[in-house]
């Protein structure tokens, strides 16, 4: 059903592409006006892009400067006078970022494994198998997207505390082995619905059971959607500070995000080091984004939701 809907949409999009040409031809008649509009349009667009990029530029710029240069108002410095790469080594030395990075990776890998496995399983059940209670369970899981996290926060914390697991990574990793979040289930389900059922039927005739259909057909065919889920999960884990500040107490267990928070407390006046440390934490996100931006944005467009 939804598969048909998608192809219809694709056809519509293609129609749109074809229709654009006559429009262009029509506009050719009023050329000067057209160019004025174009220039205005790109000016606004570039101005907005600039606003969007300035904070990032500012972080980089400050990370290479002497601290005294950051504090100077007049003359104001837009470009570092000299590139002080030593800020980065100083920042790395003044906090245990190596350890924080390892900790973060442990959590990220755990969450990735849990989310990819269990959210795709749930999506398979919700899209391909007809079972009693399916729509009820699906609706229940979807409502959790609207549920304020603070309602469940305190009992969750008390449960982990009573299990004596606070200050370990289990409260941060284990939940992702239980469905991996409503958004991911929804995203994968939408994608699975678009995979033609004929493939399952053919496999079933060849003697494949539901498990084989899941591993041999659904998973390989939905690689692109799984990439989206993986990207979102990576970014969420990497950036999360709320979970770690609640569940991690000792410095040795901190993640990068919390380590960075701590860094501010200890070095609040050394803006150059702070910005260098921020850049170090931000860099992997940007690298991941450079590779996955198209998939990420299509993931949001596909579901009409945000993670």
């Amino acid at each position: 059903m939804a598969g048909k809907g998608q192809t219809k949409e694709a056809a519509q999009a293609m129609d749109g592409g074809v229709v654009l040409h006559p429009q262009k031809k029509m506009r050719k008649k009023r050329r000067p006006y057209f160019y004025v509009k174009k220039v205005l349009f790109y000016t606004v667009l570039l101005a907005l892009s600039l606003i969007c990029v300035i904070p990032l530029y500012w972080m980089l710029r400050s990370s290479f400067m002497k601290n005294t240069d950051i504090y100077s108002m007049r003359p104001f410095i837009f470009w570092p006078k000299e590139m002080l790469w030593s800020n980065y080594t100083d920042a790395l030395k003044s906090a245990d970022f190596g350890r924080y990075a390892v900790n973060t990776m442990v959590i990220v890998i755990g969450c990735l494994a849990g989310t990819l496995l269990t959210s795709s399983m749930a999506a398979y059940a919700f899209s391909r198998v007809k079972w009693k209670g399916r729509s009820f369970c699906f609706a229940m899981i979807l409502t959790t997207m609207m549920l304020p996290g603070s309602v469940t926060l305190i009992p969750q914390f008390m449960i982990w505390r009573n299990l004596n697991l606070v200050d370990t990574y289990r409260p941060l990793i284990l939940p992702s082995f239980f469905g991996g979040g409503a958004f991911n289930i929804f995203l994968l389900r939408q994608f699975f619905l678009g995979i033609p059922r004929d493939l399952d039927d053919a496999a079933r005739i060849d003697g494949a059971g539901p498990f084989q259909i899941y591993t041999r057909i659904m998973l390989p065919l939905s690689r692109s959607a799984m990439v989206v889920v993986a990207l979102f999960t990576f970014l969420n884990c990497w950036n999360d500070f709320f979970g770690p500040i609640i569940y991690l107490n000792t410095k040795e267990n901190f993640t990068l995000a919390v380590g960075l928070l701590q860094f501010r407390g200890d070095y609040s006046t050394k803006w150059n080091l702070l910005m260098a440390a921020s850049t170090i934490v931000v860099a992997p996100c940007i690298v991941i984004y450079l590779f996955g931006q198209k998939q990420l944005i299509e993931g949001i467009s596909l579901t009409g939701l945000k993670a």
Binding site: S49, V53, P55, L235, N239, V258, S278, V282, Y289
Partner: peptide
């Protein structure tokens, strides 16, 4: 589109510092 989306993927801690 990717450029305007970029700030969303940054860690809140780092972008807040900036």
């Amino acid at each position: 589109r990717s450029l305007f989306y970029l700030p969303c993927i940054l860690p809140a801690v780092a972008s807040s510092f900036v």
